[in-house]
Design a protein around this nucleic acid. Structure first.
Lengths: 249, 249
DNA sequence: CGTTGCATTGAGTGTTGTCAAGCTCTGTGG
DNA sequence: CCACAGAGCTTGACAACACTCAATGCAACG
C-alpha cells in the first residue's frame, strides 16, 4: 500500500527508516488482525490494556464521552496509523477508541513491541514518529478549537483528512475527493459543534461551490477557496521534521 | 523543592525513580540557567533549536500566533516542567515559547540529554513521563475547548493550575489560593475566549462567592462549587499511570 | 410499507464577540 | 506632590455566531 512518500518529512534520509520500521511493525502485528463493525468499541473506556494497535483499513476514533451526554472526539486514526502507543508506558486509558467505519485493526502486546524496538532501530523510529506526529496534530487541533469558527474548523478538517489520506496512500496527492465514513454527528463531536450546525455550514460550502460532503464522500470543488478559509489555522510547517539522523546506534 | 509527591502516580514504585530522574536532569542543566523578563520569547517561532528546557521558577507558555492577529496559548509550563523534549526528535518548532512571568529557565543540548538518558534509566523515565503527561493534558484540553462553555473552562483552569502547583511543591495540596501571573488576555488566549468575556465570567464567579482572580492572585472561596462547575470536563483519572514497572533494566 | 437512522430546515434563544468608553493602578517626569 | 501616560480591567450596548427544539425529508432495510 504505501508507496514512496508514506511519511512526508523534511529530512529525507529518515523516509526509508520509517518505511522499514512501519513494515516491520505491520509484520509483527500480522498475527492478530481483527475486524470491528462501525460504531463498536475497540478499546473500552477506563479499562486496562497492554496492546499497541495499528489501523490496517477503515477509520478509527478516540472518543471522550462526558458524564452529561456530550462527547468529544479527540483524534481520528487512518490506515497506517498506530494508536495506543502510550500503552507502552501507561496501563489505564481514560478515553474509548471506536471504529468509525468498519475497521480492520491489528495489535501487539506492548512488551513484545518494546523488545522489538530495542532490537530494531527502524521500529523505534517509527514509534517515536507516531508520538511526535500525534502531539503536532493535537497542538494544531487546540488552535483550531480555541480560535477557529465553524467554517474554518470544517475547512481545516477537510484539508487535513485529504492530506493524511494522501500520505497514507489511500488517495492520490492531488485528488479532490475521497471517502469519509463519518456521520455529521461525529464531525460535530470532532469539531466541538452540534450536528445541526455542521449541516448548516456544509450547506453554505455546498452553495458556495467550495466543497460537498454527502453519502460518505467528500468532494472539494474549489480547493483554493477552501485553503483560503482554513488558512489562518494552518500549521505553516505542514510536517514534522524528525531529527533521527542524529541518533546514535 | 520537591518533597514527597512531586509526581503523583498510581504506581507508587515509580515515584522515587522520577524524583531521582528529575534531580539528575536538574543537575545536568544547572550549568545553563537564564532569566527571562515577563513577555519575552524563550524560543522564537519557526526557528531551529536543539535544546531541552526546564522551568526552575516562574511561568512559561507555548503560544501560537495566527496570521490575522488572533493567538492561542497551547500549553502553560510551571516550575519543574520540561519543555521542548520534542527537540530530541524534531528540529523545527512551529510555536513560540514565552515567559509569562519573569522566569528562570535552564536548558541542555538535546544530544547530551539523550546520552544521559541512555546511561541513566531514571532520566529516561523522567523524559517519558513528561511526554505522556503532556499528551494527557492536551487530550483534556481538547475536550475542554471543544465541549466546555466559558465558565466550565475557567473553572477547569483554576483547578488544574492549583493541582499542578501543588504537585510542583509551589503551594500546599490543600491551599485555596495561589499566585497566578497571567493577564486576563493570556487567560483568554488559553481558554479560546476574549479578554472581555473572561472578565465577565470572573465577575460572576466573584459575585457567586466561588473564586476570585485579581492582582496576580487566585483565591478559591468555594472549592466544592468550583469543582462542580468543572466536573463535566474533569478527567476522571486525575493522573497518568506509567507502567515503567514493566521495563526491563 | 413501516421503521430506523441520518440529514435538513426553520424559528427562537443564548452565549460569546465586537466596539467603545471609562476605570484603576502604577510608574515617570515635571 | 502632581500630572500624565500606559497597561490592564470593567462595563454597556449591540451584533454575530452557534445552540435548542421541533418538524420534515430521505434513504436503507427489514
Amino acid at each position: 500500500m504505501p508507496d514512496s512518500a508514506r511519511f512526508a518529512l523534511h529530512r529525507p534520509e529518515i523516509g526509508p527508516c520509517l518505511e522499514r520500521g512501519d513494515e516491520a511493525v505491520a509484520r509483527l502485528m500480522a498475527a492478530s488482525v481483527r475486524t470491528f463493525d462501525a460504531g463498536t468499541a475497540i478499546i473500552e473506556m477506563g479499562g486496562e490494556h497492554d496492546l499497541v494497535h495499528r489501523v490496517r483499513a477503515g477509520w478509527v476514533s478516540r472518543v471522550r464521552p462526558l458524564p452529561d451526554g456530550r462527547s468529544q472526539i479527540i483524534a481520528v486514526f487512518l490506515p497506517g496509523d498506530l494508536f495506543g502507543v502510550k500503552s507502552m508506558f501507561v496501563t489505564r486509558h481514560v478515553d474509548a477508541v471506536e471504529a468509525v467505519s468498519e475497521a480492520v485493526v491489528e495489535c501487539i502486546d506492548q512488551r513484545a513491541l518494546r523488545d522489538a524496538a530495542a532490537r530494531d532501530f527502524d521500529i523505534s523510529v517509527r514509534l517515536t514518529w507516531q508520538v511526535v506526529e500525534e502531539e503536532r496534530r493535537l497542538h494544531n487541533w487546540v488552535v483550531g478549537l480555541g480560535r477557529g469558527n465553524a467554517e474554518e474548523r470544517l475547512a481545516l478538517l477537510l484539508l487535513d483528512l485529504r492530506g493524511r489520506l494522501a500520505l497514507a496512500g489511500q488517495i492520490d496527492a492531488l485528488a479532490t475527493e475521497y471517502d469519509c465514513p463519518m456521520t455529521q454527528q461525529q464531525v460535530a463531536d470532532l469539531l466541538g459543534l452540534t450536528n445541526v450546525h455542521v449541516s448548516r455550514v456544509l450547506r453554505t460550502l455546498r452553495e458556495e461551490g467550495i466543497a460537498m460532503m454527502r453519502a460518505g464522500r467528500v468532494q472539494i470543488t474549489d480547493l483554493a477557496r477552501l485553503e483560503k478559509l482554513a488558512y489562518p489555522l494552518q500549521d505553516l510547517f505542514e510536517h514534522a521534521e524528525p531529527a533521527f539522523g542524529r541518533h546514535g546506534p
